[in-house]
């Protein structure tokens, strides 16, 4: 029952968001600031995660290709596909659910308990529209770009670990990368990351916006935001894979 209550409230929350902004200039400025916070602010962590994800996937796939029945250059193909289809969009977004999600929820929660959101409402400003819509738009525009960046870095990370660990040569790795490339895989990753971006930003904002009480509740909202965002990412990962790649 609690799930349906949250789902209903979340839907109403989203319906209240999509209104014409009070001032387009202010809205655009807010969106740019949020894009900087989400995008530039997440550059470091996404870089680190991506390089190591690519490196680990090369080592693990390399370990399994010892039979000699599969040509060694196929390692590059497997690393490419596993990172583009799954690791880069999903792992990056799970990490961002923690970083961006908790940041949005705690910011909104603190504004709620210190009556800053009430102050906006009394001024006649649709607080959800003013505060949340720029975050969602910034997330939807920025996170897919971070995912593309993560794809590139994970493939580079895979090459570095492959060469350093004497698992594969650069030539063979590049040959594998160029074998049977399906451009749709990138579109698939972009569709997934755009969906995940919407889920992370909106679910986190919803939990922050509903905070009542004090510091303890802000922390609780932040935790809830991360947990629900991560669960939503995993569920939609399955749904989108089934819809877009299923037979």
């Amino acid at each position: 029952m609690k799930f349906f209550e949250h789902f209903g409230n979340y839907t109403l929350f989203l319906l209240g968001l999509f209104k014409r902004p009070e001032r387009f200039k202010v809205f655009a400025k807010q969106t740019l600031l949020e894009m900087s916070s989400i995008g530039v602010g997440s550059f470091g962590i996404v870089s680190l995660i991506s390089v190591f994800t690519g490196a680990v996937s090369t080592i693990q796939i390399g370990v399994q290709l010892v039979s000699g029945l599969v040509p060694d250059y196929m390692l590059g193909t497997f690393v490419r596909d596993s990172n583009i289809y799954e690791f880069s969009p999903t792992i990056t977004c799970l990490v961002l659910a923690g970083k961006v999600g908790s940041s949005i929820a705690s910011e909104m929660g603190t504004m709620k308990v210190t009556e800053q959101i009430d102050a906006l409402e009394i001024m006649g400003i649709n607080s959800a529209n003013y505060l949340v819509l720029p975050k969602i738009l910034a997330g939807v525009l920025t996170i897919p770009l971070l995912v593309v960046y993560a794809m590139v870095l994970s493939i580079i990370g895979g090459a570095i670990s492959g060469v350093m660990g004497d698992i594969i040569s650069v030539d063979a790795y590049v040959r594998g990368l160029r074998t049977d490339f399906v451009p749709f895989s990138v579109w698939f990753a972009l569709i997934k990351s755009t969906t995940f971006a919407f889920l992370i930003t909106s679910i986190s904002a919803y939990h922050g916006y509903r905070t009542e009480g004090g510091a303890l509740e802000v922390g609780r909202s932040s935790t809830m935001a991360v947990v629900y965002s991560a669960v939503a990412v995993i569920i939609f990962d399955y749904i989108l894979s089934d819809i877009l790649l299923g037979a």
Partner: peptide, 11 residues
């Protein structure tokens, strides 16, 4: 116009 107990200034 409203003056809040905790002022509610935007941090």
């Amino acid at each position: 116009g409203m003056l809040f107990q905790g002022t509610a200034l935007f941090d």
